[in-house]
Write a protein that binds this DNA or RNA. Structure first.
Length: 109
DNA sequence: ACGGTGACGAGAT
DNA sequence: TATCTCGCCACCG
C-alpha cells in the first residue's frame, strides 16, 4: 500500500503509543527492522507538519531525555506535553524509561 | 544516481 | 559522570 515508506512506518508505529507512555528512537528503529536507523526515525519526526496527529512528543532518546537540539521552543513544549499526560520529568530531564516506556505488543497491523 | 542532511547511539577520553 | 567524535541510514533535489 501507500505506507511502504520508512517514514510512514515510523508514523504508524508512533501513533500506537498511548498517552502517558513514551518510546525511544532506537526502539522504533528496531521494531522496523533497522536497529541502526535511529537517526532516520528522529528525522522522520522532525519532518512532521505542525498540525500532525502523530504524537511525536512521546518519542525521546535512549537516555530518557528530550532531544530537539537546535529548535529553541520545542524542548520546553515537549516537556509540557509529556507532563500533561502524567509523565514525571525530573530536574535533570531524565524520564524513567523503566516506568514509562511503552512495549509495542502488536506493532504494525 | 549521488551526496548532503539530521528529534540518534555507543564508545572513548 | 559529562563531553566529544564518529558511524549509521532513509529521504530529497
Amino acid at each position: 500500500m501507500a505506507n511502504s515508506n520508512f517514514f510512514e512506518q515510523v508514523y504508524t508505529l508512533v501513533s500506537q503509543i498511548p498517552s502517558g507512555k513514551v518510546a525511544t528512537y532506537r526502539q522504533i528503529a528496531i521494531l522496523l527492522g533497522n536497529p541502526r536507523a535511529s537517526r532516520t526515525v528522529g528525522w522522520a519526526l522532525h519532518q512532521l507538519p505542525e498540525g500532525s496527529p502523530v504524537p511525536w512528543h512521546r518519542v525521546i532518546n535512549a537516555q530518557g531525555k528530550i532531544s530537539t537540539t537546535t529548535i529553541t521552543e520545542l524542548p520546553d513544549w515537549q516537556k509540557i506535553l509529556l507532563e500533561q499526560e502524567g509523565i514525571r520529568v525530573p530536574n535533570d530531564g531524565r524520564i524513567d524509561l523503566s516506568q514509562y516506556q511503552y512495549q509495542f505488543e502488536a506493532a504494525l497491523g
